[in-house]
Design a binder for these strands. Structure first.
Length: 257
DNA sequence: ATGGCAACTTCCAGTTGA
């Protein structure tokens, strides 16, 4: 079973790239972030025609998450993190697919830091940690994937010294990520490739992709029952080089179920 | 240290992203 995550940076302006990637990569499950579309303008018909069912949580202008499946039933569980009914950002959607709980998340960016946006990032992170803890303890097979907006360690950033005051790399942010990992989760990509330079985002500026000046911020976390099932993983790096592409590249894992 | 790019909105300049 192949599961992918892809921050599309606007699903409607990204539609040709998204459809081409689905056709070429053929993930069984695709978790999407940054739809940047209201609920009613999600391109459901084009996605259905490409062979995928979808559930999504849209929002005007910003955020937005979706889970797509090919030839698999999808049962939605929730479409927000517990813990703050006032939080209206569309940043989390969770479903059960093929017996696996899949959480698709778009963690807040948090810049500029310090400030209210960074406070919101850390608060959202706390709610994710609380919810993830419940999921992990349940013993169910769970995949928590998406755009975490965190580089976990120095190896995950081109010139990490340039990111030390950035919300994606500040000590509080990394500490929150490691608190989450310490519940027992496996960082799938880093576990299979412990020393490799792997990036999932390259800035649009200054030919960052051409220079491979990237960062690794899109992650797959696996709960206990899935750790022994992880077969392979990777980044569809070439997608970042396509015309009218996102600033993120898709990331995928293959599970031997 | 700065600003470079892209997508959004609703009227082309301001905001957000990472």
């Amino acid at each position: 079973m192949k599961i992918a995550t892809y921050n599309v940076n606007g699903i409607n302006s990204r539609l040709p790239v998204l459809l081409r990637w689905l056709e070429e990569a053929k993930p069984d499950v695709a978790c999407l972030q940054e739809l940047k579309t209201p609920q009613e303008k999600f391109p459901e018909e084009a996605i259905l025609n490409a062979g995928y069912k979808a559930i999504w949580h849209g929002q005007k202008s910003w955020n937005g998450v979706a889970i797509l499946t090919r030839n698999l039933e999808i049962q939605e569980v929730r479409r927000a993190l517990p813990g703050d009914s006032e939080d209206l950002h569309s940043r989390y959607i969770e479903a059960i697919v093929n017996g696996i709980t899949i959480g698709c998340l778009y963690l807040p960016n948090g810049n500029p830091a310090p400030g209210p946006k960074f406070d919101y990032k850390l608060q959202w992170f706390d709610r994710l940690i609380a919810h993830a803890g419940e999921l992990y303890k349940s013993g169910a097979p769970v995949v928590l994937t998406g755009d975490y907006n965190v580089m976990p360690t120095d190896i995950d950033a081109y010139k990490p010294e340039r990111w030390v005051k950035d919300a994606l790399f500040l000590p509080e942010t990394r500490a929150a990520f490691h608190k989450l990992i310490d519940q027992g989760w496996m960082d799938a990509v880093r576990t299979l490739h412990p020393n490799e330079v792997i990036y999932t985002f390259w800035d649009y500026f200054r030919d960052a992709y051409g220079r491979n000046a990237g960062i690794r911020i899109d992650h797959f976390l696996l709960s206990e029952p899935l750790k022994s099932k992880l077969k392979s993983c990777g980044v569809n790096r070439d997608v970042r080089g396509w015309e009218k592409t996102s600033d993120h590249a898709p990331v995928w894992i293959e599970l031997n179920l």
